[in-house]
């Protein structure tokens, strides 16, 4: 007896048999290796300016500092300004930073009991204003969605121009992680009378700190 899988594939094959004009299997394999050149929107001006503009368009906030050493102070000041307790859940990837005395710091994932998370980024995309985060023991995905405030640290060199550049970097890893998140602003909804409301299920604030050195 044939399986549902076989029956579906047979029907698909029958349906496409006559009209297969895109060539041989070898050509398809070739296309998998190297997709045909696709249109990329032209970007104008400075990549970081573009990233910042698009991020803010999606209701994210942006801040720049000069060196990695400044990050703890910048985080602390940001929380102070926004009236948020200086208690952060940090991705283990950032364990080596000198977080200092002012911040209460713990490391690991979350089940929702941490109001503020600080995570690294894999890269940032100027085209869309997104930060890209990869799941791992060093950067648990729960930190990206459960806290009220999500702070992402990005290095200037990590800013790429188009989405396709992320794919290139991802392929270079050899192994794709379980989760790849493109994050382009805080959580939002317009499901009640088409009125935009920030903070649906995920973070109410997305704050990106870019290290310029």
């Amino acid at each position: 007896m044939s399986t549902a899988r076989e029956r579906i594939l047979v029907r698909v094959r029958d349906a496409v048999a006559g009209g297969r004009k895109d060539g041989s299997r070898a050509e398809l394999e070739q296309r998998m290796e190297q997709a045909p050149p696709l249109i990329r929107p032209k970007l104008h001006g400075d990549l970081i300016a573009r990233f910042r503009e698009k991020l803010m368009q999606g209701s994210g906030t942006f801040e720049q500092c000069d060196t990695p050493d400044e990050v703890p102070a910048v985080v602390f000041a940001y929380l102070q300004t926004n009236g948020v307790a200086a208690k952060i859940r940090v991705a283990p990837a950032l364990q080596d930073a000198a977080w200092g005395e002012e911040l209460e710091v713990s490391y690991g994932n979350t089940r929702g009991d941490h109001p503020v998370s600080v995570t690294p980024a894999f890269c940032a995309v100027a085209e869309t204003g997104s930060v890209v985060l990869l799941s791992s023991d060093k950067s648990p995905t729960s930190l990206n969605f459960l806290p009220d405030v999500h702070i992402v640290i990005v290095d200037k060199d990590q800013v790429v121009s188009h989405i396709e550049d992320v794919w290139v970097k991802l392929r270079a890893l050899g192994e794709i992680p379980r989760t790849v998140n493109f994050i382009t602003g805080p959580s939002k909804t317009a499901d009640v009378e088409q009125t935009l409301q920030i903070g649906a299920h995920g973070p109410r604030d997305l704050h990106v700190i870019l290290i310029a050195s």
Binding site: Q57, T128, I176, R178
Partner: peptide, 12 residues
């Protein structure tokens, strides 16, 4: 929108 807040790839 140009891009939504979240675009997520899940693999395995």
């Amino acid at each position: 929108q140009e891009f939504t807040s979240y675009t997520t790839l899940s693999t395995g």
